[in-house]
Design a binder for these strands. Sequence first.
DNA 1: CAGTGGTCTAGACCACGTA
DNA 2: ACGTGGTCTAGACCACTGT
Lengths: 243, 243
Amino acid sequence: MVMSADTALGFRPLYLQVREEITRQLASGRWQPGTMLPSEQELARELGVSQGTVRKALDAMTAERILVRRQGRGTFVAEYEDSRILFQFFRFFPDEGERLFPVSKVLNLSSAMPNPREREALALAENATVWRLSRLRYHGPELMLREMLSLPTEVFPGLSEIGEIPNNVYRLYSQHWGVTVTRIAEKLKAVPADEADSAELNCSLGTPLLEVRRTAFDLNKRPVEYRESRCLTEAMHYASDLS
Amino acid sequence: MVMSADTALGFRPLYLQVREEITRQLASGRWQPGTMLPSEQELARELGVSQGTVRKALDAMTAERILVRRQGRGTFVAEYEDSRILFQFFRFFPDEGERLFPVSKVLNLSSAMPNPREREALALAENATVWRLSRLRYHGPELMLREMLSLPTEVFPGLSEIGEIPNNVYRLYSQHWGVTVTRIAEKLKAVPADEADSAELNCSLGTPLLEVRRTAFDLNKRPVEYRESRCLTEAMHYASDLS
DNA sequence: CAGTGGTCTAGACCACGTA
DNA sequence: ACGTGGTCTAGACCACTGT
C-alpha cells in the first residue's frame, strides 16, 4: 500500500492517513490486545512511507493510549489491565489511605427497550434494545456507589449467557466482542438520594450523592456503553486534572 | 549555549533540556504572553541544536498549552483569553442552551493566617499569610456557585490595591505578577448546603451541592492558588473527559 | 514574494531488553 | 550480539500568512 500526501482535493498529512490505516486494521482485529505490532521499519515498508512517518502515527496513538511502546521490546496493543482502568478510566480516590480496585456485586441483568436518555447517549435506532446491568461497588469493605450500565444488545450479543460479569467490564468487552473503549465522557452533578439510593446505599433520604453519567466510545468513535452511577462521597472524592 | 545529550551521569534527552531552557526563559519574563518567540531556526542557533530538536520541544510545550503555534505566522506565548479559560480551566456547562463566561460578584477580600487546608494545598511556610477572596458566580442571570480563593500574599503582593478584581483572574495573575497558571488539580464531592451556602445561594439547608477543591500550579509547578467552590447543579453539570 | 511553521525523508547513533 | 524503540541531525518541499 502506497500513500500520498497531496491528492487533488483536500490535503491530508501522510502520518494521519497512516494512523487511520493502522486504527482500521486494529478495529478489524488484525492484532489483539497485548500482542506486538510489526516494527516501525516493517510497517514503513508495508505502507510505502518512511519510518519517521510511521513513528509520528504510532506516537499519536500512544498519546491516545491505544498503543504502548516499550524501548527495546516493541509496540503493543494496549490491554485493559486493572491498573490501567484505575489510572485512566476511574477517577474516584479515597480521601485518605490506599487506592483499591473497586469490587463489584451484580444485582441484576436484563434486556429492555431503551429510555430516552439511553437512546440519545447510545445513538440507538428506533427498534434497538439494550442490556441493563445494575451493580454495587465497594472500595475494600466500604460501599461506594451503585450504578447501572446500559449496553446495546446489538453490540454485545449473548451478554446474558456470560457466567459471571467481572469487575473489569472493559476487558470483557474487548475479549468477547472485540470492542475497544478509547474515550469516555462524564457529566457530574450533586443529587439527593432517592428511595432506591437510600435502600441500596444504606443512607438516609436526601443524602447528597455524586451522580456520574458516563458515555464510553470505541475505536470508531461509536458510543458503546452508557452508565449512571450514584456515589457516596463522604470518604471518597472524584479527581479531575485540567492541563 | 550548547547542549549535549550524553553527560557522564544521567542521560537526558536534548529536547527535554531545550524545553526546560525555554520554560526557564519564559518564567524569567523574556517573552510576555501574546508575543512571538524567535523562529525555530533562530532558537536552534541560539541553543546550538538542530531545528528538529527545537521543534520537538516546542511541540511538547504546545501540547501543554503553554505555547500556541500558527502556521505561517510564528510561535506565540499563550494568553488567558476568556475563550481559553472557558475551554481549558472551567468545566461547568449548562444542561441546555448556550455556554457563557461566568460573571463574578466579589463579596470580600481580606488577608488572614492560613487554615490547615490552605497551608497544605499551597505548601506555605510557617509564618506565611494568604489573601482570601470570596465571590459569587453567575451563568447569565442564574446564580451558579459561591467560592473562596486563597492566594499566598508573598506571591501576589499588593492584591488589595487592585481597583476591581476581574472575572478572569488568571489573566490578572499573569499581567500583574507574571504568574502563569499551567495546571489545575480538582477534587469533587457532593455535600449538603450549610447555613452560609443556604443564605448566599438562596437554597434550602441540606440541598446537594457540588464541592470543588482546586489547586492551581504555575510554570515552576509551584501551587499559587487554592479555591473552594460550592455549586448548584440543578441546571448545570461538570464535564470530565477521560481519554 | 519572503518568512513562518508543517510534513516527509534518510541515515546515524544511543538506550534498552532479550537471548 | 541482535533487534527494538528513542534521539538527533540535515535537508527538501509544502501550506499558510502578511507584504
